[in-house]
């Protein structure tokens, strides 16, 4: 019986070395590539021309692509505002990648890439640095004003600036950790309950029932966490763009 944490093990598939660095192709790399391929197939498929050129009702595939687009586009517009539209391609890519990685991780025997802090933190750090660069590019040195709330008395700056600074630096960590915790906990829980099924014999039906419910919950968490990750990116972006 495999332990509940074995599913997260990174195994080397093709050993590779580049300038003295270990850049082996691992199962994590494989599932990231699979996620990208999955997203590409999904979206390119939704762009496919229909058999009847003039049919008004979109195919199910096209509707899926459109509703994904509209969800993210609505989110960007609502959260980051009109000038946030500029960053829509990035947010959409981010959302689709995390969604695909989360959902592919739900396949039994699959590997959920987003349950690895290295992956999540790289994404979060990219966003953190990107957002900071956008903020400075747009506001110049005035961007430091973000660390001093409006209308606060000057002497409180001694406390407020460190607090705001820490709160700002927390972002990549909380972003990465949230996704990591959600995915890891879900998969560990699934594995633990799966471990009860056979030893319980006839009563194994009870954990199976729990597993069915957990699977549904995990699918929902996969979608929600992808959404939360990208909406928080939008929120940070909005702050960098409008400074409030």
């Amino acid at each position: 019986m495999a332990g509940p944490l074995e599913q997260f093990e990174v195994k080397t598939l093709f050993p590779l070395e580049f300038v003295g660095q270990d850049v082996s192709f691992t199962n994590a790399s494989l599932w990231m590539v699979l996620s990208v391929v999955f997203v590409c197939v999904l979206l390119l498929g939704s762009l496919r021309r229909q058999e009847r050129d003039d049919s008004l009702v979109p195919s199910a595939w096209q509707s899926l692509g459109e509703s994904l687009y509209e969800t993210v586009s609505g989110m960007v517009q609502e959260t980051a505002g009109r000038d946030g539209r500029l960053f829509f391609p990035f947010i959409f890519t981010l959302f689709m990648f995390i969604l695909a990685a989360n959902l592919l991780g739900m396949i039994p025997g699959g590997f959920s890439v987003t349950s690895h802090l290295a992956v999540n933190f790289s994404l979060a750090l990219l966003i953190f640095v990107g957002v900071t660069v956008v903020g400075f590019a747009r506001h110049g040195l005035k961007y430091f004003g973000l660390f001093m709330p409006h209308g606060a008395p000057l002497w409180t700056a001694v406390i407020l600036i460190p607090i705001e600074l820490i709160s700002y630096c927390t972002r990549p960590f909380s972003l990465a950790l949230r996704l990591f915790a959600n995915m890891t906990v879900g998969h560990v829980l699934l594995k633990v309950f799966a471990g009860f099924v056979v030893p319980l014999g006839l009563f194994g039906i009870v954990p199976v029932g729990v597993l069915v419910a957990l699977n549904a919950l995990e699918l929902m968490v996969a979608v929600i966490q992808a959404y939360v990750f990208s909406i928080l990116t939008c929120v940070y972006l909005s702050e960098a763009l409008h400074m409030h």
């Binding site: 509703s67 969800t71 609505g74 989110m75 950790l177 949230r178 919950l217 929902m220 979608v223 939360v228």
Partner: peptide
């Protein structure tokens, strides 16, 4: 069309909000 708008507040979102607060 967009579960983000209204859907996020209903039911289960309480748990994800709780997780966010905890993190």
């Amino acid at each position: 069309s967009g579960e983000g708008g209204r859907g996020m507040h209903g039911g289960m979102s309480g748990m994800s909000l709780g997780a966010r607060v905890m993190v």
